[in-house]
């Protein structure tokens, strides 16, 4: 960890008193993309800190040294000094060269190109959730992006409605998800873990609630996950609550918006084929447990303002909701 970051974090911890962990920090990069940006920022930070110290010190010294004192003779009316003007024009220009050169180098290094064997994922922003499509693997999931450790990943980012921005800070910088455009970022994660992120472009009422998680798995872990996701949905055993839940799902409005492979074809909301395997619901807002799932199904807009998943009309009965929850939880 570079020294300045220790310093920064110390200040932060001292002020914060709690001291993290900071799941969305940009200061502890966990990918090559994040690291080059961090190095660039560190360099600029030191230049800025240096300039800050020099100029502010100069200002303070001037103020102290030339403060008004009784009997001080009238100041000499100096109007300017050409050489000094030239000097302090050239000095910042020179410093900027040291900022500009690595900047341009990094721009081209992070332009979104990835090696041919990169895992390609389409990222589609929706109001207010994320859709992830693994084209080669033929699988679709939502809000939780799984990537393998050490393998290059290329995200092709776009939007289905308004402008969003995909941002998982520990893995690198954000890119806008713009309807009608495709933006690319590429990164190679260098540590297993779960990294938080969220939409970074204001996109309406629940912009703050459009969160996401990136799960960096080991190679084998990723393989296992993909195998599970590729399989069809688990069929609930006969006579269980889950089976009743499947029936409730099939006869209510759910099917209009959600896909469950082999059950319903809706494409407006997230694909639920393996919703039980996800750790969170409502795009990273709540843990995926039966209590939260139940209140989410009952009244989503109460938990997520503006949510397109409106209150059911007529409202589902409590036992129907319980059945639905059991069914969804079974979709591992």
């Amino acid at each position: 960890m570079p020294r300045y970051r220790l310093w920064l974090l110390t200040v932060a911890l001292w002020v914060a008193g709690c001291g993290g962990p900071f799941p969305q920090t940009t200061l502890e990069p966990r990918s090559d993309f994040g690291s080059v940006i961090d190095q660039l920022f560190t360099g600029i930070f030191w230049w800025a800190a240096g300039v800050f110290l020099v100029v502010e010190t100069l200002l303070v010294i001037t103020l102290i040294r030339f403060r008004h004192r009784e009997g001080r003779p009238a100041p000499k009316p100096t109007h300017g000094h050409t050489l000094m003007e030239i000097a302090w024009t050239l000095a910042p220009a020179a410093i900027l060269v040291f900022v500009a050169v690595p900047t341009v180098r990094t721009i081209f290094a992070t332009a979104g190109e990835a090696p041919a064997d990169a895992l390609k994922v389409d990222v589609i922003g929706h109001q207010w959730w994320w859709e992830f499509r693994y084209r080669e693997l033929g699988l679709v999931t939502a809000n939780e992006l799984h990537v393998p450790l050490g393998r290059a990943v290329q995200l092709s980012i776009t939007s289905a409605d308004v402008i969003h921005a995909f941002w998982a800070p520990p893995l690198g910088g954000k890119r806008d998800a713009i309807p009608g455009h495709v933006n690319r970022i590429a990164f190679r994660a260098d540590r297993v873990g779960v990294y938080d992120g969220q939409c970074a472009e204001f996109c309406g009422a629940s912009h703050a609630n459009m969160r996401l998680r990136v799960v960096v798995d080991s190679d084998s872990g990723f393989g296992r996950w993909a195998t599970v996701q590729l399989a069809g949905p688990a069929a609930p055993a006969a006579g269980t609550l889950a089976e009743r839940g499947k029936a409730v799902f099939a006869r209510s409005a759910c099917i209009g918006c959600h896909t469950i492979q082999g059950v319903s074809p809706g494409v407006i909301g997230p694909n639920l084929t393996h919703v039980g395997s996800r750790a969170t619901i409502a795009s990273g807002l709540f843990p995926n447990d039966s209590a939260h799932l139940a209140s989410w199904i009952a009244d989503a807009p109460a938990l997520k303002p503006g949510s397109l998943m409106t209150r059911m009309k007529p409202p589902l009965k409590d036992d129907d909701i319980a059945a639905l929850v059991a069914y969804l939880a079974s979709l591992k």
């Binding site: 081209f108 332009a111 979104g112 190109e113 455009h181 495709v182 933006n183 690319r184």
Partner: peptide, 10 residues
Amino acid sequence: LTLRGAAGAG
């Protein structure tokens, strides 16, 4: 198209 070059986003 040409400007994006390496970015290839389009």
